[in-house]
């Protein structure tokens, strides 16, 4: 048959350039996150308090405040971004958000339950409740969504997630209405912030987040094949049910842990994988790598903006929403222009 020379694959170089750019941005923002704030601290003092004797009076701001905050920004950012990449690949819907599995609702409900019914007051206590709540809810959504079908249909998960979230939110509101003190605690938690002021809390969720990140990265190749549709996925030797279950596990770990410690933070999981796809194309391995670097950039940047914008600090979830909403509108318009294949 016809013999034609293959065009040399250009995109690989482009992809790499994007990754390098993202890595550069991430490094810059990590440094900025450590230095900027209500009080700007020079890099020399930052380095001294992290790696040196830390004699400077500002050292405590770094070690107690900005280090946990930055670390959490990196971990939670990666977690939210990757879980978004997974859910978008799984549902083949570029506008899917990891929240559709009910993680936020489950975590909120559990925190309300902990504060209102069990009288929990410690941050570690909320953490545990929120994580278990997220885990249990996602499991419930998965079981309801997967129950009784030979084929797994993402739409069923979405519906199950929406329904169960609504019920959980209803319960949570009733408890907070009856118990104003719980309402106060939960309002604080549910605002979404990186300002944890406790390195130990971050270290408590780190294992779950790191495990989730590793699973997410291992899922990249199987998700690539699942993207060809279930029939081809099977005939190419992958096992869709196993991939689905693993993906849900990864999302639960990632979203559950980050929501437990930082509260619900929207838009990162929706937006970053989308931008990553625009940069590096359709290969999940590249999307995941790009998301891993870019999502913390957004979260750290939003956090820094929040610190600098108003004296009392704007919470990061609010800033991501401000940044995210215009981008979302832009994405929606772009989807329409390209014939709206969603």
């Amino acid at each position: 048959m016809r013999k034609t020379p293959l065009p040399t694959a250009l995109p690989a170089a482009n992809r790499l350039a994007w990754l390098v750019l993202c890595l550069g941005l991430l490094s810059v923002l990590t440094l900025l996150s450590l230095t900027l704030g209500a009080k700007s601290i020079s890099l020399a003092i930052v380095a001294d308090s992290l790696f040196g004797p830390g004699q400077h009076p500002d050292a405590i701001i770094i070690t107690e405040g900005r280090l946990p905050r930055t670390l959490l920004g990196l971990l939670a950012g990666a977690a939210l971004g990757l879980s978004g990449a997974i859910i978008q690949a799984l549902t083949r819907n570029p506008l899917a958000d990891p929240g559709i599995l009910g993680v936020n609702a489950g975590a909120s409900f559990a925190v309300v339950l902990g504060a209102g019914v069990f009288g929990i007051t410690s941050a570690a206590g909320y953490l545990a409740f929120a994580f278990v709540g997220a885990l249990a809810t996602t499991l419930l959504v998965y079981l309801v969504g997967a129950y009784g079908t030979a084929r797994l249909e993402p739409m069923r998960f979405v519906l199950a997630g929406v329904a169960i979230s609504a019920v959980m939110m209803g319960f949570a509101s009733s408890i907070t209405l009856l118990n104003p003190w719980a309402f106060d605690r939960v309002r604080f938690w549910s605002a979404g912030s990186l300002d944890v002021r406790d390195l130990d809390l971050v270290l408590q969720v780190a294992p779950a987040l790191l495990l989730g990140i590793v699973i997410a990265l291992l899922l990249a190749r199987p998700l690539n094949v699942l993207g060809m549709g279930e029939d081809l996925a099977v005939s190419l030797g992958s096992r869709p049910r196993l991939i689905h279950a693993t993906a849900v596990l990864a999302i639960t770990l990632l979203c559950g842990a980050s929501t437990a410690i930082a509260g619900p933070i929207g838009f990162v999981g929706l937006m970053i994988p989308h931008i990553a796809r625009w940069m590096v194309g359709t290969d999940q391995r590249w999307i995941m790598a790009c998301t891993l670097l870019l999502a913390p950039v957004l979260l750290l940047a939003s956090d820094i903006i929040g610190r600098l914008l108003v004296p009392g600090e704007l919470r990061v979830s609010i800033v991501t929403a401000f940044v995210g909403a215009p981008v979302l509108i832009w994405l929606a318009r772009r989807a329409q222009l390209s014939g709206s294949r969603t």
Binding site: L6, R92, G227, D231, L232, S235, S238, G281
Partner: peptide, 30 residues
Amino acid sequence: VAQQLGLLPQSATAPDGISVLDLVSRGRYP
């Protein structure tokens, strides 16, 4: 099985925006 038995389904949908080279390469998965 996937190393022994392949399938071209009657209708298949490609992932959005995938290139020809990438799509053909996915046949190597098994």
